[in-house]
């Protein structure tokens, strides 16, 4: 196990070294991250120019939800986000190259293209979260701090599971285009606003069935010290870790099925 971790560490280090050789490109990426993040944030700010509150949540409260979701997403994007390029891996044969090496397939793919260039998003998200917490005037208690640490971590696992699970679409359907992103990035957009904004059936589908409601919205209720306007019980806020674990397990199963399917159909 330790041996294996060391191998992966070497792989990641090599990848980082490779990316660092494009210094200009790396700087550009950091700027690009800022632009994308800024535009997401700006969209929320502009919407709140029209109304004082959305779904019963003020701008400051919404930004806490947004910050929690964004931090979780940015973390998962950093570590596993590259897996969305699965279609390219299948087409260019990188997947075959990985299959002839004595290591796990998923681990290699993740380590071979870890997204150091996306580190900017993590920084910006955390900064926003801190600012939003100050603005929302939330007194920090140990429970809230625990929640603030736990939520982005669970969110990262949860989004990571979606990245991996949806990337397997490429094993069946190489021309699937942006289809995977409708769940990953769609899920991120869903979590950016408090759940009462959405209609009942979308809440059921995205919030509960797919589980995106437990990524930021329910945990944020504890942080903000509010009851659920939708009438959900208080313990729902603490289900994040369980939901993340469930999603990770499901993603692993889907991934294994996908790899098995690839081996029986080829590219």
């Amino acid at each position: 196990m330790a041996e294996r971790l060391r191998i992966y560490r070497e792989l990641v280090r090599a990848q980082v070294r490779g990316q660092a050789s494009y210094r200009l490109s790396f700087t550009l990426d950091l700027l690009g991250n800022l632009l994308f993040f800024g535009s997401d944030l700006l969209a929320v700010l502009v919407v709140f120019r029209q109304v004082p509150a959305l779904g019963g949540f003020t701008l400051r409260e919404t930004l806490v939800v947004f910050g929690l979701a964004a931090t979780g997403f940015a973390l998962s994007d950093l570590f596993v986000g590259n897996i969305e390029r699965m279609k390219t891996y299948v087409r260019t044969g990188l997947l075959d190259a990985v299959l002839i090496r004595p290591l796990g397939v998923l681990g290699q793919l993740l380590a071979l293209d870890v997204g150091v260039r996306r580190i900017g998003r993590v920084v910006y998200s955390v900064l926003l979260l801190v600012v939003a917490l100050r603005a929302a005037d939330v007194p920090l208690t140990p429970v809230r701090v625990l929640m603030l640490v736990l939520t982005p971590l669970c969110g990262a696992v949860f989004f990571g599971a979606f990245f991996i699970a949806t990337s397997t679409v490429a094993f069946w359907w190489v021309e699937s285009g942006e289809l995977s992103s409708s769940l990953t990035y769609g899920g991120r957009d869903f979590t950016a606003y408090p759940m009462p904004v959405y209609g009942t059936w979308l809440r059921r589908l995205f919030g509960f069935t797919l589980g995106f409601g437990f990524v930021a919205y329910y945990p944020s209720l504890v942080v903000l010290g509010r009851a659920d306007p939708l009438g959900g019980p208080a313990w729902l806020s603490w289900t994040g870790p369980a939901v993340a674990a469930l999603a990770a397990a499901a993603a692993w199963l889907i991934w294994r099925t996908g790899v098995r399917h690839y081996r029986s159909t080829g590219s």
Partner: peptide, 28 residues
């Protein structure tokens, strides 16, 4: 196939944006 995939993706984002806009409209 790419057209189908793109249309589905556009529709999912359409759903999400619609609800936000409807919430804005209702609040206004």
């Amino acid at each position: 196939q790419a057209t189908v995939a793109a249309t589905v993706t556009n529709s999912v984002f359409g759903l999400l944006r619609t609800y936000v806009m409807l919430a804005v409209s209702a609040a206004a």
